[in-house]
Structure formats: C-alpha cells, structure tokens
C-alpha cells in the first residue's frame, strides 16, 4: 500500500516536473524569439507575410463564425428577454456578450484551428526535413526567422480578426433582432451605445492580445520541439490545438475575474 502510494506520488511528481520544464522551455523559446524583434537583421517583411498568411487566410472563417454567433445570440437573447418584457435590451446584451467574451474566445478558437495548427505542422515538418538545421547552417537563426514572425503575427492578427468578428456579429444580431424578431431599431442601437463602455472594448482588446501571445508561443513551441517523425508532427499539432484551446479558456477566466 505504501509502495503504491509512493509510486503514484512519484509519477505525479515526475509529470509535474516535466510539465513545468516544458512550460519553462516554451516561455524561454517564445520570449527569447520575441527579443529578436529589436535585433538586426530586421524581420519586418516576414512579419508582414505572416500577418497576411494568418490573418487574411482566417478572414472568411472568422466572419462566418461572427455572423452565426451574433444570430444565435439574438435568437437566444430575445427568447430570454421577452420573458421579462425587456426585448429592448437585446442590443446591449448582444454587444456586451460579443465584445467582452464571445468575440475574443471564439475568435481565438477559430485562429487556433485555422492558423495555430498550420503553424505547428509547418514548423514540425521543417524540423523533420532538416530545414531548421539548414537555416542554422546558413547562419540564419530559426528563432528570428521562423518563430518570432509567427508569434508577432498572431499577436497582431488576432485583435484585427476579432474586431471583424465583433462587427459582423453585431450586424448579424441586429438583422435577426430588428428585421426578423421585430425589436425596435432605435432601442437596439441606443441600448448598445449606452451600455457598452470604452472599458468593455479595452477588456476585449487585452484578451485578444493575451490569447494571440498564448497561441503564438504554444503553437510555435510544439512545432519547434516536435519529435522529427511524421507521427511526432501529427501528435504535436493535436497537442498544440488542445493546449492552446484550454489555455485560452483558463486565461479568459483569469482575465475576466481580474477585470470585473
């Protein structure tokens, strides 16, 4: 019995140490790569390329997700508010939900699925095919050339994509609430303008920047440290998506509780 307990505690200790070691390694890789932003050779062109690849490539999926989120919120919100005769609050309910919570979280999930997984897979394949080693042998630091532009690009692209998510979501909520469900247009807009403060927008921005950083660091780290086999890259991609999603939810809770 005592032996079993020692064995269980030993396994728990080892896995905790391993997790802490990985977290430390990911942070060291991520932040040391980002430090190269201010060192020559400048990687501006590669950052712009990555913002384009990650951002423009995710535009459609973000717009679709935003639209349907706004539409569902309008239907559900109207159903709930109608019970209390407060349909006029629909505009503010949709706006606050999307700007403070759903926009950043769902947008981050879409970014993880669309761009995060491709970042991990791309870097992992570069590891398998020795392209990262080849860069090093050509005196090009992969942290500066591959890792840093992708992290910075996620930090830049995610807030912009979520701004789009918010706008499309609000517009879709307006169409469903006002045109389909018959909520008064003036009340919808007025409630939205009155109830949504600059502080709410700022919370949304801060969340998107933090989520972008998380996605960038986690997805690049998993790719960079992927076992150099096809199975290793597949596993790294799955783990990157899962861990990024869970991290977004955890940090969403932390940030929400901090700002409330």
């Amino acid at each position: 019995m005592v032996n079993l307990l020692i064995e269980v505690l030993g396994k728990l200790g080892r896995s905790t140490l391993l997790t802490l070691q990985r977290m430390g390694d990911a942070n060291i890789l991520g932040f040391s790569a980002m430090a190269m932003l201010v060192q020559p050779p400048w990687q501006g062109r590669h950052i712009v390329q990555q913002v384009y690849a990650l951002g423009v490539g995710s535009l459609v999926i973000i717009a679709i997700t935003g639209a349907f989120t706004g539409m569902v919120l309008a239907l559900q919100g109207y159903y709930m508010l109608a019970k209390f005769g407060s349909e006029s609050l629909l505009g503010s309910a949709i706006a606050l939900s999307i700007i403070r919570e759903l926009g950043p979280v769902l947008g981050a999930f879409m970014m993880i699925g669309r761009a995060g997984s491709s970042i991990t897979a791309e870097i992992g394949i570069m590891r398998v095919t020795e392209q990262l080693d080849a860069l090093q042998m050509m005196a090009v630091n992969p942290k500066a050339r591959i890792i840093m532009p992708r992290i910075i690009a996620t930090v830049i692209a995610l807030p912009l994509l979520i701004a789009l998510f918010d706008v499309v979501g609000l517009a879709a909520g307006y169409v469903i609430g006002v045109d389909l469900l018959g909520v008064n247009s003036g009340a919808f807009i007025a409630e939205m303008v009155t109830k949504v403060r600059m502080e709410d927008l700022n919370i949304g921005w801060i969340k998107t920047i933090v989520f972008g950083l998380l996605i960038g660091i986690i997805c690049t780290w998993y790719g960079y440290r992927a076992e150099p086999t096809t199975e290793g890259v597949a596993r790294a991609t799955t783990q990157a998506v899962v861990l990024s999603s869970v991290s977004v939810l955890i940090f969403d809770y932390i940030l929400t509780s901090f700002f409330l």
């Binding site: 095919t129 020795e130 392209q131 080693d133 080849a134 860069l135 042998m137």
Partner: peptide, 12 residues
C-alpha cells in the same frame, strides 16, 4: 561554413 544534408533540406 556550408553543409549538404543527406536528404537535401531544401526550403520547400
């Protein structure tokens, strides 16, 4: 330095 890798390692 330069290096020729076994499987070429061209940037794809």
């Amino acid at each position: 330095m330069g290096m020729v890798f076994q499987y070429s390692a061209l940037l794809n």
